[in-house]
């Protein structure tokens, strides 16, 4: 009998979603952390399937995994201290730039002058942009989580088109876990996802997108389209008086449409058939 757990969609969508709901709800219920902690819990479940616990050799993918966990810890500490200082999204964006340098520095160092400069600048801008916007919208959990759903699915499927199922599964896991946190936001009252959600989500999705360009076959122009997803989440008009599930549905559709455009473009650029 085929083991259900061998299916990528179970590993990177169903299980992380369920774990994120359980851990997020339990943490919020017992006051351990904001419900957004479910996102990193779901992500770790997928990591265990696609990577195991091994961190050697310390590849870019494993650095990303470590960074996600570190970002969640920093975010949890910030939540615990109720740290909402002005300009926090910018600080988080700067942190994400440093993180991206650690992951992608080696790849950049192999490029020549102008190419290195352009790639480095692109990586910095994209990672900072994604991290900034997810945290900028932390007060509106539906908008913040809708970014992770759209960007997680978009980045993940784009990575698969770009020949990396590993990065694809990791990104889709964030999308699924982000969806779980959105669900918790609908079910639980006055429960923001917190920095424990916004910081790792931004860092992970920003860097996974860049790494897929650097180490796999995704054209960088696809990131330009994916980079519009935060704007779709921010500027899609919704009214506070509408039922929250309708607001969530509209925002999610909006970010997924953006992701769909990016995927159609990635598919067109790949110009080739499927492969498994």
């Amino acid at each position: 009998m085929t083991n259900l757990l061998d299916f990528p969609e179970i590993q990177s969508a169903v299980l992380p979603f369920l774990i994120a709901v359980l851990i997020g709800a339990a943490s919020a219920r017992f006051g351990l952390a904001k419900c957004g902690i479910g996102m990193i819990a779901g992500f770790i479940v997928t990591v265990l399937f696609v990577n195991g616990i091994s961190l050697q050799p310390l590849t870019a993918a494993r650095k990303i995994i470590l960074l996600g966990i570190a970002a969640a810890i920093i975010g949890a500490v910030a939540d615990h201290r109720d740290a909402h200082w002005p300009g926090r999204p910018l600080y988080f964006a700067m942190l994400s730039v440093l993180a991206s340098a650690w992951v992608l520095g080696l790849a950049l160092s192999r490029k020549n002058g102008l190419e290195m400069l352009a790639a480095g600048l692109g990586i910095m801008v994209y990672t900072a942009w994604i991290t900034y916007w997810i945290d900028r919208l932390h007060d509106n959990e539906l908008r913040a989580t809708s970014i992770t759903v759209g960007l997680g699915v978009g980045t993940g499927l784009a990575a698969i088109i770009g020949s990396s199922a590993l990065f694809g599964q990791l990104a889709i896991s964030i999308g699924a876990s982000g969806g779980a946190v959105m669900l918790l936001g609908l079910l639980l009252k006055n429960n923001k996802p917190g920095s424990v959600f916004t910081l790792p989500a931004g860092v992970l999705l920003g860097i996974i997108g860049c790494t897929t360009v650097a180490f796999a076959e995704l054209p960088w122009t696809v990131l330009v389209v994916l980079g519009l997803i935060p704007l779709a989440a921010r500027y899609t008009p919704i009214e506070e008086v509408w039922p929250r599930w309708i607001q969530a549905a509209i925002l999610t559709i909006s970010t997924l449409v953006c992701a769909g455009i990016a995927l159609a473009y990635a598919w067109y650029m790949a110009g080739s058939s499927s492969y498994s």
């Binding site: 870019a60 990396s164 492969y275």
Partner: peptide
């Protein structure tokens, strides 16, 4: 496409 996948971080991680 399979060669691209084998070169990716999933397997030989050839860029790194």
């Amino acid at each position: 496409k399979r060669d691209q996948h084998l070169k990716s971080p999933d397997f030989f991680n050839a860029a790194e």
